[in-house]
Simulated assay, not measured.
Amino acid sequence: MMRVYKLLFLAVALMVGGFFSSIGVPAGWLLGGLLTGIFYGLFIRAFDFSGWPFQMALAMVGINIGIIMESDLFQQLTHYLFPLFITLVLTLLTGLLLGIFLDRWTDLDRRTAFFCTIPGGASEVIAISSDYGADQRIVASFHTARITMFVLIIPFGIGMVYGQGNMDMPSEALLIPTTLQISFFAIIILGSYVLNRLISFPGGILIYSIAFGFLGSEFVVNIGEVPGYVSGIGQGLIGAMVGIRFERSTVVRLKSIGFASLKVLGLYLLCSLGIAVLFFWLTPLSYLTSLLSTVPAGAAEMASTAVALQIEPTLVASLHIIRVISIFIVLPFLFRWLMKDRS
């Protein structure tokens, strides 16, 4: 029965996402799924989509990114590594500073405060936080609020300003995926999931699905033009699975932290906007592309937003994956330094 309720929820989320997209709401599929998830989590009931359901949705988005990926991306990436390094250091320092603020402004222990503000992949940070002695429930609540805030603000606020967001062209509305396209997606999703189980690392399934989508469509088979709503379905699923994490217990835990949680989230937003300005100055990219590439809101969520807004999704996904992996490499050293005596 629980599976039936979950499928019903996802169906409603996709219907809302499809409606939003049809009326031209920026990132309509993603926002429709996200808002439906928030509503369900707060007023109806919450579901757990961690594990393979979220990974399958992420792989679906990754394949769409791989299909539109161009071979000169790797040459482009070399031009952005130095600006990315600078902004990555600033993002890490921002997370550390906000963790110190959260530690001083609240009665949270330092471990929990630190993991609440680490700008890494939310799922991975939440998963390992308990191993370091942090309160996983508080960490999950804080990261859920942070990602929900960014995914809501960026498409609504900036997407409206830039006037972008409707993925689906009217001519695509009647297109039906071919048997070849359905088989292509099914094989890559399954292959990416299995490979990620064998060789797992932060953002692994996103990397695998992008790579397989690119290699398969470029060198193996010509799958033709994929209808835009196929990508939209992946975005809607991710939005729904992220949004439903923002349920009543999340609000209760954030309220228990007090006004300090709002201050830290607000500072996170302001610092992220400022760091994006620096990346914009250091590169020829637009400000919106710079923001999507540097904001610490999760590789999956920002890659989906980039696809929805049609703004350099392969570049955005690649830079976020580099960011997440880099953070997890230095995380043990940062934690050891932060946990030293304040003296």
Rank of each mutant, 00 (worst) to 15 (best):
L30E: 05
G18M: 14
S290N: 04
F280H: 15
A140W: 06
I322H: 01
M167L: 15
W337R: 11
G224L: 10
I38H: 05
I189H: 01
S290P: 07
V194W: 10
A140T: 04
G121S: 13
L58T: 14
G274C: 14
F9C: 09
V307W: 00
G32Y: 01
T112K: 04
A308K: 04
F47W: 07
G51S: 11
L291W: 03
F184P: 08
A127W: 00
P202H: 03
A13K: 06
F214R: 00
S326Q: 01
E218G: 03
G258S: 08
A127H: 06
G165V: 09
I205E: 09
T94S: 15
A145Q: 03
L73E: 01
L282W: 11
A211H: 01
L152Y: 02
D107S: 14
V161N: 04
G203L: 12
M69I: 05
R146Y: 06
G232W: 07
G239M: 07
H79W: 11
P202E: 05
I44Q: 02
R253F: 13
F114C: 10
V220H: 01
V242K: 01
A173F: 13
L10M: 10
D103T: 08
L282Y: 10
M1L: 13
G224Y: 04
P155W: 10
F246C: 10
I244M: 10
A46P: 04
K6T: 05
L30W: 01
F201T: 01
G37F: 05
S261I: 09
V220P: 03
P177A: 10
L292S: 05
R342A: 14
F185H: 07
I44C: 08
L174Y: 11
I329S: 08
P296V: 12
G236M: 11
L98G: 02
V16P: 01
F9K: 02
M2A: 12
C116L: 10
I23M: 12
H143D: 05
T117E: 08
G24Q: 06
G62V: 03
S256C: 05
F43L: 14
E312M: 15
I38G: 07
L309R: 04
M167S: 12
I189Q: 00
G243T: 09
L195H: 06
V251G: 06
P332D: 09
G243A: 11
W52S: 11
A317N: 05
Y132F: 15
N64K: 10
Y40R: 10
D135W: 07
Y208C: 11
I68R: 05
A11N: 03
A299G: 07
I158Q: 09
T283H: 06
A59G: 09
G121T: 13
V194Q: 04
P53C: 12
G24P: 09
V89T: 10
S183K: 05
F142S: 04
L58G: 02
L30Y: 03
L90F: 03
V16T: 12
V251L: 15
T250P: 02
F9P: 03
T314V: 10
L254V: 08
M160E: 04
S318Q: 08
